[in-house]
Lab assay of single mutants.
Amino acid sequence: MTYKLISNGKTLKGETTTEAVDAATAEKVFKQYANDNGVDGEWTYDDATKTFTVTE
C-alpha cells in the first residue's frame, strides 16, 4: 500500500510517499525520514487516507 507523509516542519515542508506492508512499517520509514531531515514534532495518522502528518 502507498502511505503519505505531510511534513509541516520549521525547515522542511512538503509531502512524500512510501510503499509499505502496513502503517507501522510506513511510520518507521517516515520517522527515520523526518529524523534525517531534522524534523521533530507531533505526529498524527489518518487511516482513511493512509496519511501521516508531522507538525513542528
Rank of each mutant, 00 (worst) to 15 (best):
T44K: 08
T17Y: 14
K10T: 13
I6N: 04
D47Y: 07
K31N: 03
A20Q: 07
E15Q: 10
K28E: 08
A23G: 04
T17M: 09
K4G: 03
F52I: 01
M1C: 14
D46T: 04
N8E: 08
S7H: 14
T51Q: 04
T53P: 00
V39T: 05
T16L: 14
G38W: 04
F30T: 00
T17F: 14
K13A: 10
E56S: 09
T11R: 10
D40K: 13
Y45S: 01
Q32F: 05
N35D: 10
N37Y: 11
A26K: 01
A24V: 10
F52W: 06
L12N: 06
N35K: 15
L12A: 06
V39D: 02
E19Q: 14
D22K: 02
W43P: 00
I6E: 04
Y3E: 03
E19V: 15
N37V: 09
E56D: 09
A34I: 07
A24N: 08
E19W: 15
N35M: 15
V39G: 04
T44Q: 09
T2W: 12
E56M: 10
D40L: 13
A34S: 05
G9Q: 05
K10Y: 10
E27P: 00
G9S: 13
G41Q: 03
T25Y: 07
V39L: 14
V29T: 10
Y3S: 02
V21Q: 11
E56Y: 10
A20V: 04
D36H: 08
N8V: 14
T17D: 04
T2G: 04
M1G: 11
T44I: 08
E27M: 14
E15D: 06
T49W: 03
T25Q: 12
T16F: 15
A26Y: 01
G41M: 03
V21T: 12
T51P: 00
N35V: 13
T53F: 11
T53H: 07
A34L: 11
M1A: 12
T17L: 10
V54S: 01
E15H: 10
E56N: 07
G9M: 12
T53L: 07
T17E: 08
Y3R: 02
E19L: 14
W43S: 00
T53C: 08
L12E: 06
E42L: 12
K50Q: 09
Y45N: 00
K13H: 10
E27V: 05
T51L: 03
D46Q: 04
Y33I: 09
N37Q: 10
V21P: 15
T49V: 05
E27R: 09
E42P: 04
S7M: 15
T18Y: 11
T53D: 01
G41R: 02
A20R: 02
N8H: 12
Y33K: 03
T16R: 12
E19T: 14
D46H: 05
Y45I: 01
W43A: 00
V29R: 09
D47Q: 09
Y45D: 00
A24S: 09
D47I: 08
I6H: 05
K50H: 12
T2Y: 08
T49Q: 06
K50F: 09
T49R: 06
F52R: 00
K4F: 13
G14I: 15
Q32K: 14
T44W: 07
Y33M: 07
E27I: 07
Q32W: 05
M1D: 13
D40I: 14
I6K: 07
T55Y: 10
K13W: 11
T55S: 09
G41C: 03
G41W: 05
S7K: 04
N37C: 11
T17C: 12
F30W: 01
E15W: 14
E27G: 06
G38A: 06
S7E: 04
F52L: 00
K50W: 05
V54L: 13
A23T: 08
T11M: 12
T18G: 03
E15M: 14
A26M: 02
Y33S: 02
K4V: 11
G14A: 12
K50Y: 08
K4S: 06
G41D: 01
F30S: 00
E15C: 15
A20E: 04
V39W: 14
I6S: 04
V39Q: 05
Y45T: 00
K28P: 01
N37E: 06
E19H: 13
A24H: 09
E42S: 10
F30L: 05
K31W: 06
S7C: 15
W43N: 00
D46G: 01
V29C: 09
K4R: 13
I6Q: 06
E42A: 10
K13L: 12
I6T: 05
K10G: 11
S7D: 04
T16G: 04
V39R: 03
V29K: 09
A26C: 01
L12D: 05
A23F: 12
E19R: 14
N37S: 07
G41N: 02
T2E: 07
K50E: 02
M1R: 12
F52A: 00
E56C: 08
T53I: 08
V54D: 00
Y3A: 02
Y45C: 01
D40Y: 15
L5P: 03
A48R: 11
K28Q: 10
T25W: 07
N35Q: 14
V21E: 11
G14F: 15
G41A: 03
G38T: 03
G41T: 02
D36I: 10
K50M: 09
F52Y: 05
T44L: 08
T25N: 07
W43Y: 02
K13G: 07
G38P: 01
K13Q: 12
D36Y: 07
A34V: 08
E42T: 13
T51S: 04
A23L: 07
Y33P: 00
D47N: 07
T11W: 13
D36S: 10
Q32Y: 04
S7R: 06
V21I: 13
T11S: 11
F52G: 00
L5D: 02
A24F: 09
D22R: 02
D36G: 05
K4C: 08
L5N: 01
A26R: 01
G41H: 02
E27T: 03
D22C: 05
V39P: 02
Y45V: 00
K50G: 05
A26Q: 01
K50P: 00
V39C: 07
K10P: 15
Y3T: 02
T44G: 06
E19C: 14
L12K: 08
D47S: 12
V54E: 01
G38F: 06
N8P: 05
D47P: 14
F30A: 00
L12S: 08
K31Q: 07
A26W: 01
A26N: 01
D36E: 13
E15L: 14
T18L: 13
E56W: 12
I6L: 08
N8S: 09
T55D: 06
D36C: 11
E56F: 10
E15K: 07
L5G: 02
E27S: 06
K4D: 02
Y33W: 15
M1W: 13
K13M: 11
I6A: 04
T53A: 04
Y33Q: 03
E56T: 08
D36V: 10
S7A: 14
D46K: 03
F30K: 00
G9T: 15
T16C: 15
Q32H: 06
Q32L: 09
V29D: 04
L5M: 07
D47W: 08
K31V: 05
K31D: 00
T53R: 08
Q32C: 06
N37K: 10
N35F: 15
A48Y: 10
V54P: 00
G38L: 06
D46S: 05
T49E: 05
E42H: 12
G14T: 14
E19N: 13
E56I: 12
A34D: 01
D46P: 00
I6P: 01
T51F: 01
T16E: 05
Q32V: 07
K10C: 14
K28C: 10
T51Y: 02
T44M: 08
G41K: 02
E15N: 07
F30M: 02
A23Q: 11
S7N: 05
G14E: 12
V21A: 12
Y33C: 04
T53S: 07
T55I: 10
T18N: 03
L5I: 03
A24M: 10
V54K: 01
